[in-house]
Computed example of a mutant assay.
Amino acid sequence: MGIYEERGELVKPKRKLFSQRTPPATSKSEHQVELLYAIGGLSHGSNVSGVECYNPLDHEWKVLGSISRHRSSGGVASLNGSIYVVGGYDGVVCFSSVPRYEPETNSWKRDVAPISEAKRDVAVAELGGYLYCVGGYDGLLCLSTVERYDPELNRWCRVASMNRRRRGLGLAVLDGYLYAVGGSDGCSPLYSVERYNPAEDRWTPCSPMRTCREYLGCATFQGKIYAVGGRDDLTELRSVERFDPVANEWSAVMPMKSKRSKVSLAAANGYLLAIGGYDGTVHVTTVEAFDVEMNKWRRFGNTQTCHPGGGVTAINTAPCDRETPQVVRSR
């Protein structure tokens, strides 16, 4: 295993994606909109994906530049206007470093403290002004450990470990709790789900999913947790289920149009979007949007590049700041 530090490098502009035919998801109002950022990814051919931004007002993805170092299978989450990429893998070694991306300047920073151990296949989410890094794989073992990042102290600390070891898990925030969904224990995909209470620093079991899933997409949307795609014991999945915290149960919803493992799921601007993933043959760029009322998925354009093992997160921005960042040099 090895621990690598990032080195700043020139962020090169790429060509602009053509506009899609689908109408914009959000009208040009005085309300805030959420920009989606797809970060990183590394294919077996050492092809490296950079940073893409989706603007709902224009309904298009733009490539902004490169990531600070070749990296996949890291956790991606936003906190206080910055995007953090936690841990990951370059095809040879795992990382403990945490590069921070500033959307306003389109630059990468190296000022974040590393996590305690190098690992990949982690899940990361923001809760209560902290980042939580959950589970993962250190190159030898599947992990149950959890670390919390305090941005004011610039420090990670251990909190209570999960009851199960999990890599390639989903992580969602709902009603002040963290939910660790599925994943793999290092031997097989999991049905199980557990919930973290930060006030008690304790994980408790929840109702299991109907399908075992690893490398799934997971997000909270309209008060429910969605688990989409992933992989079971045999193949990539297009099935979808959602958790109702009131009923305390999972129920099936309409499957996606495409099979997708390592899919990114994001809730933004009133949409639930399944972005990219692996369909069992190739890494795809297609995006699907879920219509809750119609209980169906529809095509929602494409990213410009694939992001195998990358992540997606949202950043709030005011309409006056709707232009995506200009390309600058990383610092």
Rank of each mutant, 00 (worst) to 15 (best):
R7C: 10
R7K: 14
L10E: 14
P23I: 10
S29P: 01
E34I: 07
Y37V: 05
I39K: 07
I39Q: 10
I39L: 14
G41Q: 11
H44D: 14
G45Y: 08
N47F: 10
Y54L: 08
K62Q: 14
S73C: 12
G75M: 05
Y84G: 02
Y89D: 12
V92M: 02
K119P: 00
R120G: 03
Y130Q: 08
Y130L: 12
V134S: 08
G135V: 04
D138F: 01
C142S: 15
P151Q: 02
E152F: 08
R158F: 14
A160E: 06
A160C: 08
M162H: 07
R165T: 09
R167Q: 14
L171V: 06
L174S: 08
G186D: 08
G186V: 07
C187Q: 13
Y191N: 11
Y191P: 00
Y191H: 15
E194Y: 06
R195E: 05
N197F: 02
R202G: 00
W203F: 13
C212G: 00
C212Q: 14
E214P: 00
C218T: 15
T220L: 05
I225F: 04
G230A: 09
R231G: 09
D232M: 06
E236Y: 10
V240T: 14
D244T: 11
A247W: 01
E249W: 01
V253F: 05
K257G: 14
K259C: 15
K262Y: 12
L273A: 03
G280V: 12
V284G: 01
E288Q: 14
A289N: 03
F290R: 06
F290Y: 15
D291S: 12
N295A: 11
N295H: 07
T303W: 03
Q304S: 15
T305L: 11
T317W: 01
Q326P: 00
